[in-house]
């Protein structure tokens, strides 16, 4: 997204990065100025410099790591379990019209339900450890991936199917060489959203009740009206969400080499 818009504007490469950094700096400077001059009350809006110091001390003293590790572990587990089960169930339903017709209204209903409200139930079922957060993450990840798998199977070109059948593919070979790769490619394109969802599940779960994790840190800070720490938590979460997204981008690039570059983007 940012790449495409960058290409259209006159700014390019390092210059663009410079201006982007400057924009961030200006926002922080304005925030700081407004708070220091008491235009905005410090109590509610915190102080950018203190927020940054808090975030940095977390890392220098290392107190953040166990919390961050918990949140990331929950994210990864939710993503892996959610995506795998969605792939299996999506494949099964897409290739089985009867089962698909039978379950369709319920899948739609579950998808439209605001699934965050399941968090209290999961807390009761799985306790305050990581599994209640993983469960919440799974429910969020599952549907994103599920619908993509379903679409991926349905979108397989009839010509490609006829061709592979004429080449002698059995049903299981068809699944392995056509349906599965097609579904996987759709799953990969939903990866960014899915990983984001897993992250949301982990943090929201922690925020609603936990003893560890970045969400827990934020909850604790909020309890004592320590706005700076809340903002520092948000900052750390944002940075790691970006890192995760970048990681996903790398994986996607490696696995989808066969895909033509989307129209409008530059070849490299």
């Amino acid at each position: 997204m940012s790449k495409a818009s960058g290409n259209k504007s006159g700014l390019r490469g390092p210059m663009l990065r410079f201006w982007q950094a400057l924009l961030l700096l200006v926002v922080f400077a304005v925030w700081q100025a407004l708070v220091v001059t008491n235009v905005l009350p410090k109590f509610f809006f915190g102080e950018p410099i203190k927020v940054l110091t808090r975030a940095v001390t977390w890392f220098t003293t290392g107190t953040i790591w166990p919390h961050l590790a918990t949140t990331l572990l929950e994210t990864v587990l939710a993503f892996v379990i959610g995506a795998t089960s969605a792939l299996v169930i999506g494949l099964w339903l897409a290739l089985n019209p009867t089962a698909s017709a039978l379950t369709e209204p319920y899948i739609k209903a579950m998808n439209s339900m605001p699934r965050v409200i399941l968090a209290p139930i999961f807390a009761v079922w799985f306790g305050l450890g990581i599994w209640s957060k993983v469960a919440l993450g799974i429910t969020l990840v599952f549907f994103v991936v599920f619908f993509n798998v379903y679409q991926g199977i349905r979108e397989v070109s009839p010509v490609v199917l006829a061709n592979t059948r004429m080449l002698g593919a059995s049903r299981s070979q068809l699944l392995r060489t056509v349906y599965l790769p097609s579904a996987t490619s759709w799953v990969l394109s939903s990866l960014h959203t899915a990983v984001g969802m897993a992250f949301v599940g982990a943090v929201v779960g922690e925020y609603l009740g936990s003893s560890k994790g970045v969400g827990y840190l934020i909850l604790q800070a909020e309890g004592v009206f320590d706005v700076n720490t809340v903002f520092a938590g948000i900052l750390v979460l944002t940075i790691f969400a970006l890192l995760l997204d970048g990681l996903v981008g790398l994986v996607e690039k490696r696995l989808l080499v066969w895909r033509p570059a989307p129209a409008g983007s530059e070849a490299h």
Binding site: S157, V159, V160, N163, T164, L167, Q173, T177, S185, W258
Partner: peptide, 23 residues
Amino acid sequence: FQADSLLPWRTALENVTLGLEYR
């Protein structure tokens, strides 16, 4: 076929081996 019928996620070589793989 008239339309493209190759598997887009397989290289040219892997597309040609497809039928042999099925056998």
